[in-house]
Design a protein around this nucleic acid. Sequence first.
RNA 1: GCGGAUAUGGUGUAGUGGUAACAUAGGAGGUUUCCAACCUCUUGUCGCGGGUUCGACUCCCGCUAUCCGCACCA
Length: 556
Amino acid sequence: MSGEESGRLERLSEVLKRRGILLPAFEIHGGAKGLYDFGPVGGRLRTRVNQNWLNHWLSLGNIVELSCPTVTPYEVLEASGHVGEFSDFMTVCTSCDEASRADTLLEGHHPNPDSLSKSELQSLLNSVQPSCPSCAAAEWSEITAENLMFNTTIGAGKSGRPGFLRPETAQGMFTSFPALYRHNRERLPFGAVQVGKGYRNEISPRQGMIRLREFNMAELEYFINPHEQEEHDFSSWNEISVNLVAENHGEMHLTFDVAVRDGIIRHPTVGYFMAQTYDFLKNIGIDVERLRFRQHESNEMAHYASDCWDAEILGSYGWVECVGIAHRGCYDLEAHEKATGKSLRARREFDQPRVIEIDGWTIDGAKAGPAFRNRAGMVKAAVERLDSGTEFPCEITLEDGETAIVEQEHVKRNQRTETQTGEWYIPHVVEPAFGIDRIIWHLLDHAYDESEKNGETYTTLRLSEHVAPVDYCVFPLFEKDGMDKIARLVHSKLCSRAGVVSMYDGSGSIGRRYARADEIGVPRCITVDHQSLEDQTVTVRDRDSGNQQRVHIDSL
RNA sequence: GCGGAUAUGGUGUAGUGGUAACAUAGGAGGUUUCCAACCUCUUGUCGCGGGUUCGACUCCCGCUAUCCGCACCA
């Protein structure tokens, strides 16, 4: 970052703090790392971004909104892989009490210590006995798993159950799949969105809003049938050439349509959501000249994902990942299915019914049951795998490794025709996940404008009116002669409208009040002047052009 | 987590072992016929905890937070 840029960043942060947009949280208690307040102005900015996001996706027509708990039982996040994925294995030096990561200590003794399990790390640690980086001793405590998720206990005392604050909103949407499937009349594709808080106990939060311990996120889980290709209409983006950084291709400018057709974007639904993401970001005021989509390298992608693109936005901290759009395959639903034994599947009917000839053996329960007793189940499974030509008696190997002798009388021939009209499959998921705080940061970064006015720096926050925290400021030119009365009337009239925020400001010179409004990005200021007293008209000033229009109070 | 630097009104800064200054901002009043003007009055500050000292915002220690590297993470 150049000196000039870091100066701009400092001035921007100062304005955000001074104007109540973004502030360190709990500051009177000394502050808390990785936690921020959206202040009296920022609070509504966040709400409006969230609302725009929800509206954007709900308008697609087959998407519903969910709200799931942030407190999440251990089992849920174990099933999803977070417990394993989000853990660091720590050990403590017994002589100086310094905690170290076990895998870091063992670098050089194993090609990839990060990939080892807890017990493998423990035995490697025991045999290597690395010296402590701070005191050089070589005695280590037993390895413990330190989690990047916030631990909590759900319930009190002995009945308390371990849990975490969720590290993402997605899991609640996966576990709600049965309800979503029913709600959507058992027809795919459909999606669920959720806006809410996520928590990660980051070792070292940095760079202001970029890495937080509690953050706002917004995720869409879009469930699709992998056997069918959904048609997506890209025609409204045909004129837009977007900056793509593709694996093995480098940086290129293509339309979404072409990128999907040429297989750069590997799945059309991923491409469609990238295009929708482009629209959303543009709509709330991100400068699309400073937006790019970067494809994950194959080795960077989670193992279950088949394609993943990050929307990256260029701001004071360089290119920052703000949205991730991933094709997650069936990983998540399958993981919860395995952990719970509950079906998280959708039904599809075949074009043609499939006729399957079954010709083999099964057990005769009345004979085999008493003969094999508690092993009868395993015998049944083994017998049903036998070829139709098998002759009895016959020795078979059971799944526990033991063998059993099966007599002719234990079995019977199983010959029948089965007709399958369809099957139950695990839907695939395409997931656009948005980091709202990072997006808001870049919104502010892109909107922050410094210009010269009479030799002084003049600050304007050129926020889109879709997200501007305050819609109108109402000023009496002077707070006397009845101008203040009319201004207060206009103000309360605007405020009474649903979803409109107006601020009355009567202190200081008119120029000062315009400047204050510009600094928090109010799109329009309404001024009541002497003429208003005579003909009930007011001036409406546009933030970006400074132009004023005179309109009647009733037509506001 | 490691190393370095820093912490003074809302914001930006000055300064001192004897209880704090400047600018700006905020409030009230006046003035002013539209873009941080002017005048008067006014509000508000030494991050937290401990130690040294008759006395600590100042010196020492610890903590917390911020910034910069490294590491970590996406």
